[in-house]
């Protein structure tokens, strides 16, 4: 089992008021699953994504990632887990504007301390994989939306992480470009990676093999399509 979440709760403190965002989720995800998490806004899907992505820790419950309990780690330990096990793809791409595509993709490898030559080789391979081998030295503002998202995917892939976590990856793209991006995810999945997709679009969720629907911080349904 790659991910094992048990009785996961997250409560935010807004002044004197406690706001429960996730109210007790149990879920397990196996290696090479292609899973979509859906839900309307306020359903707790962003909170769940932050916890699964090790950007945040739960208030209660446990989260075992790759047989390690990561629910009680400190900032720097979480940073290391994110660096080695998680690849993020965001709706707004989140590339560094001043750096070219290659440098953006190299970034996770810089923080894992790989030597320059090795980094460059791996980043180039990742960019080739998403079809951007010829645009490595372009900066984000010189690339189209679809290309930017492909750079982001290459960055997520480059460290060969346990999970690719994509948060509304097509939200800022037109539908044709969105389809291209989804095809890339399918190839990645076919290559043996585990993908977790956060979306509220049915047609995007349809690309996945399993759909988990959240409502008010709880799992409403969990259907396997195979």
């Amino acid at each position: 089992m790659l991910i094992e979440v048990t009785n996961l709760k997250k409560t935010y403190q807004l002044g004197d008021i406690e706001v429960p965002a996730v109210r007790g989720i149990d879920m397990s995800i196996e290696k090479n699953e292609y899973l979509a998490i859906m839900g309307p806004s306020g359903s707790g899907k962003s909170t769940l994504m932050n916890i699964i992505g090790c950007l945040d820790v739960p208030t209660e419950g446990s989260y075992i990632l790759d047989s390690k309990d990561v629910s009680k780690l400190n900032d720097d330990e979480l940073a290391e887990i994110r660096n080695r096990k998680i690849g993020f793809v965001f709706q707004t791409f989140n590339l560094l504007p001043r750096a070219d595509a290659l440098h953006n993709v190299e970034l996770p490898l810089i923080y894992s301390g790989l030597p320059r030559a090795k980094r460059k080789e791996m980043a180039e391979a990742a960019l080739d994989k998403v079809g951007l081998g010829d645009r490595m030295h372009h900066k984000p503002n010189e690339l189209s939306g679809g290309e930017r998202q492909r750079v982001a995917i290459a960055r997520a892939l480059v460290n060969n992480p346990a999970i690719i976590l994509a948060d509304e990856p097509t939200g800022n793209l037109d539908s044709n470009t969105g389809e291209e991006i989804m095809e890339i995810f399918e190839q990645i999945h076919a290559g043996g990676n585990t993908i977790i997709l956060i979306t509220h679009e049915e047609y995007i969720a349809n690309h996945s093999n399993r759909v988990v629907r959240l409502l008010d911080g709880l799992i409403q349904s969990d259907e396997n399509k195979q």
Binding site: L55, R82, F88, L95, L107, Y111
Partner: peptide, 10 residues
């Protein structure tokens, strides 16, 4: 935020 998300420590 981006740097931290992809693994930069403090």
């Amino acid at each position: 935020g981006i740097r931290k998300a992809i693994g930069a420590r403090r």
